[in-house]
Design a protein around this nucleic acid. Sequence first.
DNA 1: CGCGTCACCTGTTGATCGGTAGGTTTCGTT
DNA 2: AACGAAACCTACCGATCAACAGGTGACGCG
Lengths: 211, 211
Amino acid sequence: MSALYLCHGKPHGEPRPSYGDVMTSGAPRSARGTERRAEILRAALEVIAERGYRGASLAAVAERVALTPQGLLHHFPTKEALLVAVLAERDQWDAVPGTGWRLELLGQLVEYNAMRPGIVQTFSALLGESVTEGHPAREFFTQRYEAVRANMAQVLRTEYGERLPSGLTPERAAPLLVAVMDGLQYQWLLAPDSVDMPAAFRDFLTLLGED
Amino acid sequence: MSALYLCHGKPHGEPRPSYGDVMTSGAPRSARGTERRAEILRAALEVIAERGYRGASLAAVAERVALTPQGLLHHFPTKEALLVAVLAERDQWDAVPGTGWRLELLGQLVEYNAMRPGIVQTFSALLGESVTEGHPAREFFTQRYEAVRANMAQVLRTEYGERLPSGLTPERAAPLLVAVMDGLQYQWLLAPDSVDMPAAFRDFLTLLGED
DNA sequence: CGCGTCACCTGTTGATCGGTAGGTTTCGTT
DNA sequence: AACGAAACCTACCGATCAACAGGTGACGCG
């Protein structure tokens, strides 16, 4: 999924079988190593936002943490492993809005995202790339969207019950909800001054709220 | 804009000041040359769909039309010129649904797109890339979205008049309409069997039609 | 028939890519 | 103090990248 579903570092309920289970390296890390790893991941997030995954070179990421590309490869054996680690980290942070979520929180989430263009840009760029052949993030996004749609349907159900405007079921409205969040991001990233992303999203929510 | 707004070769009303005005080359083309150019553009479209713009090498495009990379550069002086030409070609085809459009046509357009995953994938991949720094397609998409939002607002106005559900104005609903089209494309590309793009889009239209 | 232009080639260049091999330094532990 | 592992380096590799230079053959047009 895109940055939208990334939450404010909110703890997630239960341990999930996640993309992060693919360990990046057998190398045990210690003390400062773990710290360095985190720095690298943050740098990678930035570079991917600026150039995409394919356009992000190991050298560019390494430079940002004052390392040689080879020093970087000590922490992450391959470029793909680095991407996987970036995705896995977010996998822990976010919550793929769980069963307990309410729509109001989604609105706040969009507002939060509007203050963090970097993260939004990273995941929007990755989402776009992921539809190409053999992209390492494709499986990640596919699985994630499946989960997000299901959870969104659940959120809609607990919020509005079984019946929505136009006789829509929560399951049929969920893809629309997700699509609006993602689509608005692209418009907002391209023209932040022309598109009020949070306001537009709330417009959509009220549209769903009518009965 | 994304593939959604590409129409069935429908002629557009008036000549527009378009992205295509950036001529790709001063080289005059003749007879077979023009034909070859078209083949190259088609091949480029395919390769971009598969690998994105950054991932698409001149060699890959050239190979698909039985050419050397240098032979390709004879027709398009740089890689960026090739991309511009691809975008410009679509700029002619599509219609950025003009004032005369009706919502019903939009539904058919989505159905049409659902039968052409290649084109949808090309423009979805490009849209994703375009949010990164210095991407050659960024200006194209920015301008296009501005125009599409304006036209969509007009379409909504002629269809539903001034007042939509929840007191939305056409101008406020337009970004949502565009967002739904784009967002649904990504979900559909990632999981064609799980997401019925045309049906979902029609769901959204009926949502707007309620009063 | 001849000449010019277009189409396309070979050859090459310099940059950059991700990644390997193997060494050296730093540091925590005992 | 000694040892081992982790952190990080230099050196290097083959592949691939977009693009330049310069040449050749074919074809259209006068």
